[in-house]
């Protein structure tokens, strides 16, 4: 019981702290609400990338494997919505910057990683919908998960002005480790 509370508490803290610290940023005073919302959609999505591999690998106590898988699918759907809010909000804020990013001609290297991760999430969601008919789905899903998380980490780390740097680095490290653990340690499923 104590172990369950500690693990869930640590997860909530690891996900919530970067969001809370980002909300303290002085830069928010000089940003429009839609731009701020777009940024936080990205931060929340980044935090969910820590929960996803833990759910997939069954590391979260107190959940039946079926429940964990169902939550994993729901979180995946939430990621789709958050990406839509992120890209949509940025597009409203500055259309040419988002068009450049989507066309891979942006001057900022991080947008390339973000767009790659976005497409990987969309492909994953599509394949997951029909996963019983997808050949080698477990391997495909692992490969896509690596692209999503590696892309998102590169995206977040290179951006200045949205997240607090130390909590951003910690969240990225945890999400990366959790993903590697889930991808490498569960062969055959």
């Amino acid at each position: 019981m104590i172990r369950t509370i500690l693990i869930w508490g640590a997860l909530v803290l690891a996900c919530a702290l970067p969001i809370v610290l980002a909300a303290q940023s002085p830069l928010l005073a000089w940003r429009q609400p839609i731009y701020i919302a777009a940024g936080f959609a990205g931060i929340i999505a980044m935090a969910l990338l820590l929960a996803q591999p833990l759910l997939a690998a069954g590391h979260l106590p107190g959940l039946y494997p079926r429940t964990a898988r169902r939550i994993h699918a729901l979180v995946g759907l939430t990621l789709l919505l958050l990406i839509a809010a992120h890209v949509g909000g940025l597009w409203i804020t500055s259309p040419p910057d988002v068009v450049d990013a989507l066309l891979f001609r942006s001057p900022t290297p991080f947008s390339i990683w973000g767009v790659i991760a976005m497409w990987a999430v969309m492909v994953t969601a599509l394949l997951a919908r029909f996963h019983r008919r997808v050949p080698h789905w477990p391997i495909a899903h692992r490969g896509l998960a690596l692209i999503i998380v590696a892309g998102s980490i590169s995206h977040a780390l290179l951006i200045e002005g949205t997240m607090e740097p130390i909590s951003k680095f910690a969240l990225c490290a945890l999400a990366g480790l959790a993903t590697l653990n889930a991808v490498l340690n569960r062969p055959g499923r």
């Binding site: 830069l27 000089w30 500055s94 900022t108 991080f110 290179l158 200045e160 002005g161 949205t162």
Partner: peptide
Amino acid sequence: IVPAFGQA
């Protein structure tokens, strides 16, 4: 100038 779209 303040950071926007990831860079100042």
